[in-house]
Amino acid sequence: MMKAGRRDEAAAEQAEVQRINAEKGGLGRAMVLMEGAAAQLKKGQRSLAIDQLREAAKLSPDFPEAYYQLGLALAFAPGPSSPSAGAAEAETAFVQVLKLDPGHAPARFQLGRLLLARGDTEGAGYQFAKAVEAAPSLVDARRERARLALRARDWILAAAELRALLAWAPEDAAAHRELALALDGLGERAEAAREREVAARIEGTRK
C-alpha cells in the first residue's frame, strides 16, 4: 500500500504535469489567436483583432509577445504614428511586457513613444535610453533620444546618440542634419557643415 507521503508526492507531480500541459495549451491557442489578429489588422478589422489579442494575453499571461502585439494594436493601428484612444490600455500592455521581459527593447521604445505623446518627456527619455541599452541597433529609439536631447539643448548627448545611430544607418540623411544641429550647438561649425554636405549628397542620390 502506498504511503501517504508517497501519494502526496505523486499527486503533486501529476498536478505539475497538468499545469505545464495547460500552459502549453494556452500558449498554443494564444499564438493561433495572434496570427488571426494579424490577419484581421491587415483587413482593417482593428476591433476584432484587439479582442483576439486580449484573449491571447488572457490565455497565456506569461507570454510577453501577446501583450506587445496588443499594445501595438491599441496604440498605433491603423497608422504607426497616430496614438489612439486606446493609448492608456496600450501603456498597461507594454508595462506588462517589461514586467515579464525587462530587456524587451521594442516594448520600451513603444512605451516611450506613448509617454512622449502625453507629455512625459522624462519618462520617455528613460524608456528610450533603456531601449538602446538593450538593443544598440534600435535606431528609432536613438533618434527619439537624440531629439529629446536637442530640445533640451543637451548637445553632447544628442551628438553621441546621432553618431551611434549613423554607425548603424550611415545613409540616414535626417540623422546627419540633426547631428549638424548638435555640432552647431557645440561650436563645431566645420564638422557641422560637413554633416550637412553628407546629408545633401545622400538626398541628391534619392531624387
Rank of each mutant, 00 (worst) to 15 (best):
residue 169 A to S: 15
residue 45 Q to L: 08
residue 129 A to K: 14
residue 60 S to L: 08
residue 43 K to A: 14
residue 79 G to L: 11
residue 195 E to L: 00
residue 84 S to P: 00
residue 144 E to V: 01
residue 75 A to T: 05
residue 184 D to L: 10
residue 27 L to A: 12
residue 142 R to Q: 14
residue 85 A to N: 11
residue 207 K to Y: 13
residue 56 A to C: 06
residue 186 L to D: 07
residue 2 M to Y: 03
residue 17 V to S: 05
residue 101 D to E: 14
residue 27 L to R: 15
residue 189 R to S: 06
residue 124 A to N: 01
residue 145 R to F: 12
residue 125 G to K: 01
residue 98 L to Y: 03
residue 75 A to D: 08
residue 28 G to M: 10
residue 203 E to A: 12
residue 37 A to Y: 00
residue 198 V to L: 12
residue 120 D to V: 07
residue 87 A to Y: 10
residue 65 E to M: 11
residue 62 D to I: 02
residue 153 R to K: 15
residue 35 E to G: 15
residue 107 A to E: 10
residue 189 R to Y: 05
residue 94 F to W: 06
residue 167 A to Y: 12
residue 154 D to L: 11
residue 45 Q to C: 01
residue 157 L to E: 15
residue 125 G to T: 04
residue 176 H to A: 03
residue 109 F to Y: 14
residue 183 L to F: 02
residue 110 Q to M: 14
residue 175 A to M: 09
residue 72 L to D: 05
residue 35 E to A: 11
residue 116 L to Q: 11
residue 85 A to H: 05
residue 205 T to N: 02
residue 116 L to K: 09
residue 39 A to D: 13
residue 24 K to T: 09
residue 170 P to G: 13
residue 63 F to K: 03
residue 132 V to P: 11
residue 65 E to K: 11
residue 56 A to L: 05
residue 196 R to F: 12
residue 4 A to V: 00
residue 203 E to L: 14
residue 195 E to H: 13
residue 155 W to D: 04
residue 100 L to S: 08
residue 51 D to N: 08
residue 20 I to F: 05
residue 129 A to E: 12
residue 98 L to H: 04
residue 42 K to F: 00
residue 177 R to K: 07
residue 106 P to Y: 06
residue 60 S to Y: 04
residue 58 K to L: 10
residue 31 M to S: 13
residue 197 E to P: 05
residue 125 G to D: 05
residue 200 A to C: 05
residue 94 F to H: 10
residue 57 A to P: 09
residue 77 A to F: 02
residue 108 R to V: 07
residue 197 E to R: 13
residue 146 A to M: 06
residue 87 A to H: 07
residue 147 R to Y: 09
residue 141 A to W: 04
residue 200 A to T: 11
residue 52 Q to M: 07
residue 78 P to N: 03
residue 93 A to H: 02
residue 114 L to V: 06
residue 188 E to R: 09
residue 84 S to I: 00
residue 41 L to H: 10
residue 103 G to W: 01
